[in-house]
Design a binder for these strands. Sequence first.
DNA 1: TGTGATGGATAGTAGTGCGATCCATTATCC
DNA 2: GGATAATGGATCGCACTACTATCCATCACA
Lengths: 224, 224
Amino acid sequence: MKISELSRRSGVSIPTIKYYLRDGLLPPGRATAANQADYGEEHLRRLRLVRTLVGVRRLPVGAVKEILGAVTEQDGDLHQIFGIVTDARPVTQQQKQARERERQEAGEETGGVTDARELVAAMGWEVHSGTAAIRSLGEVLDALSDMDSGIDWRSLLPYARLADRISELDVQQMEGVSGVLELAERAVLVSVLLEPALLAMRRLAQEDKSARLFGGGSEEGEEE
Amino acid sequence: MKISELSRRSGVSIPTIKYYLRDGLLPPGRATAANQADYGEEHLRRLRLVRTLVGVRRLPVGAVKEILGAVTEQDGDLHQIFGIVTDARPVTQQQKQARERERQEAGEETGGVTDARELVAAMGWEVHSGTAAIRSLGEVLDALSDMDSGIDWRSLLPYARLADRISELDVQQMEGVSGVLELAERAVLVSVLLEPALLAMRRLAQEDKSARLFGGGSEEGEEE
DNA sequence: TGTGATGGATAGTAGTGCGATCCATTATCC
DNA sequence: GGATAATGGATCGCACTACTATCCATCACA
């Protein structure tokens, strides 16, 4: 398949495909001549996955590259794949620098991270301690404490128990998938793409619950 | 309080504060002269909230503006506040345009959105149908179907049930908060800031579960 | 044999989240 | 009361991201 066909079948413009090729998001096609390359079905699948992660999940291109690169070289151990996918965080360069600064002036390990480790311990989760998720959770706990919200890691325990049950559903989604690449792709899909779906459902449920509890205040407004 | 004190107390640089003032993220201080304005404690709180949403939750500045603007003018009905917060989605201009195009070529209402409505109906959630959350969920369902993942809205029902229980926790977090602005701030905190915390906990639990199920493949690597 | 697509490279664009600088005005300290 | 320094307001610039556009020599294919 030539690049024009790849473009037609995926709906992605040729310049964008070239950009992904340059950036290593898409492996180069099999070169048949100095100015000709051949792309296969797996390029199409990969391209669709990239578009999904960038377009729907809105991951930065760099993060998608990390995920896909790590996943395709570490093909074999499903747990490793989950770990890699789990560890890839969407942070831009600017934001990274800002984080650096904040971390430095906070003394390299904020109280929130310590609290996050306590929560992990309380839940009995066994994770390798360098996870980005712990830092991420730590940041939120720091912010909650800075804002005097009165919400601490203990108040998050009920949430953690539900998160635990969500993760059980997640690993169930891996059943019945055969190939190695298919498993990797499924792991990416389940752990990354379901994130916006989960948040969306939470928001829908929130609207429902808040209507039942505090609602009725002004109950017109079906118009958009 | 002068701008310099606001900067010192918040840890936010003066140019950044000026930028927020320009963009309407922060209400202007009470002008005492042509080149002097006075800021109060509520400016400090607001600034901290902005920094939390931009820095920790990584919302685009425009989205934060929408949320805060809507929340502070609609002070009164807690359900309205939840709805507003719920409806603000972080989308950049570029991405918006891309969405526009995709929606046009898909005929203005994708199958995923229809599926999303079915899921909402199956859960018995009562929401006004224009919600961004439905569109968001629809996009994910579209992507899952495009990728032939075999995951459809029915497979998401177990997730939806857990999301429902999460939302019950969310509304519980509103208890014991008194003032109107305090309630609004709490609603923002709970529904927006807890998002990264939820995702982080899900990832931690995923790592734990995947280790228990598929793990043991290569169990060294405590080093970071 | 020529026409148009291809790969590869370089440059340009729009949008975001600031930081830097300039300016006239004005609080403030001596 | 005069120097100093800070303030509000404005404009410019910068780094980064995700593309888009253009150019070019080369080559398939009709």
